[in-house]
C-alpha cells in the first residue's frame, strides 16, 4: 500500500462486491427457480425468493427425469458425466506423462517428429474437425459407448508440455544417482519421477476433470442412446420442447446439479486449480 486513501479502498470494495454479485446472480436465480412448483413460471416475473418444492423437484429429476422431453433420469446422466470426466482426466494424465518421459529422458530417432506430431494436436480442437472425427469413431463402432465419449479426447498436447517442462527442471543428479545405484528407466520413473510430479498431477487433474465434465459438442454428436447422455448435453434436450415453455423448475434443477461437481472442485481445491490453470497455459 503506497498511501492511505480510504475512499479508494471503499470504492474498490464496492466494485468487488458488485462484481461478485453480478457473477453469482444468474446461479442464485437458477437455484431459486429450481425450488418452485411449475405454475410459478406461467406468467409475470420469476420468483426471487426460495420456494418450498426443492426436495420434490430434485427428487423427481434424480430418479425419474422428464420422460416427455426425452431425458433420462439425472442420476444416470450425472453418472455418465462422471465416468467421462474421470476417464478423460486419468487417461490424459497417463498417456501424457509417459510420452513426456520418453521425450525428455531418451534420445532416439524420430524424437523431434514425435514431439511435433503431439504439438500439432494443440491446433486441432474438436470443433474444427467435427465430421471426419465423427466418421472415424463411427467406423470403429464406438458410437454410444464410454470409450467413444472419452478416448478421442484424451490426446493432449498441453498435458504433455506441462510434464515436459517439469521433467526438464528435475536435476540431472537425481538421474545419475539412480543410475549409479543400478535403477533402470522404469524404476527411476516409478520411484523418483512420479513422486516428484505429485502436485503437478493433482493440479492437472483438477483442470482436466472440469474440461471433461463440461464437454458438450462431442457427447452431442456421438450419443443417440439416452442411457449415454451426459448431463451438460442433456439440458439442451429438456429446453428444446417443441410445443410450450420448458418446465423451468426442472430445467433449473438440472442446471444446478450440472454445475455443482465442477464448481465444488474449483472451490475446494482452489490452490491446485490456480496452479493447474497457470501452468497449462505456459
Amino acid at each position: 500500500m503506497v498511501e492511505n486513501r480510504p475512499w479508494l479502498t471503499f470504492f474498490s470494495h464496492a466494485i468487488l462486491i458488485l462484481g461478485v454479485l453480478a457473477v453469482a446472480f444468474p446461479v442464485y436465480l437458477a437455484f431459486i427457480a429450481s425450488t418452485h412448483p411449475q405454475n410459478a413460471f406461467i406468467s409475470g416475473l420469476v420468483p426471487l425468493l426460495p420456494g418450498d418444492r426443492m426436495i420434490e423437484n430434485y427428487g423427481t429429476m434424480l430418479d425419474a427425469g422428464i420422460s416427455t422431453s426425452g431425458a433420462p433420469p439425472l442420476g444416470v446422466m450425472m453418472w455418465n458425466s462422471l465416468v467421462m470426466a474421470l476417464s478423460i482426466a486419468i487417461g490424459k494424465i497417463i498417456i501424457s506423462i509417459l510420452s513426456a518421459f520418453a521425450i525428455v529422458y531418451f534420445r532416439f530417432p524420430f524424437r523431434l517428429l514425435a514431439f511435433w506430431a503431439i504439438f500439432i494436436t494443440l491446433m486441432l480442437p474438436v470443433e474444427v474437425r467435427i465430421l471426419p472425427t465423427f466418421k472415424v469413431v463411427a467406423d470403429l463402432g464406438l458410437l454410444n459407448s464410454y470409450a467413444g465419449l472419452s478416448i478421442p479426447l484424451i490426446a493432449s498436447a498441453t498435458a504433455t508440455f506441462l510434464f515436459r517442462q517439469f521433467f526438464i527442471t528435475v536435476p540431472d543428479e537425481l538421474t545419475e544417482a539412480a543410475r549409479v545405484d543400478g535403477a533402470g528407466p522404469m524404476k527411476f520413473f516409478r520411484d523418483i519421477l512420479l513422486p516428484l510430479s505429485r502436485t503437478n498431477i493433482a493440479a492437472l487433474f483438477v483442470i482436466l476433470f472440469i474440461y471433461g465434465w463440461n464437454q458438450y459438442l462431442w457427447p452431442l454428436l456421438i450419443t443417440t442412446d439416452e442411457s449415454y447422455y451426459t448431463i451438460v448435453m442433456g439440458i439442451k434436450r429438456m429446453v428444446q420442447v417443441a410445443d410450450s415453455q420448458p418446465n423451468w423448475n426442472f430445467v433449473m434443477a438440472t442446471v444446478t446439479l450440472a454445475m455443482l461437481p465442477p464448481v465444488l472442485v474449483v472451490i475446494l481445491m482452489q490452490r491446485l486449480f490456480v496452479k493447474g490453470l497457470v501452468e497449462t497455459e505456459k
Binding site: A30, A33, W213, V266
Partner: peptide
C-alpha cells in the same frame, strides 16, 4: 474464491442460465 468459480460452469450451462434471465 468468490470470483473464480464461473470458470467451472460449462458454456452450455452458462448459456441456459442467461437465456432464462
Amino acid at each position: 474464491t468468490l470470483l473464480v468459480w464461473p470458470y467451472a460452469v460449462a458454456p452450455a450451462v452458462a448459456g441456459v442460465l442467461w437465456w432464462f434471465m
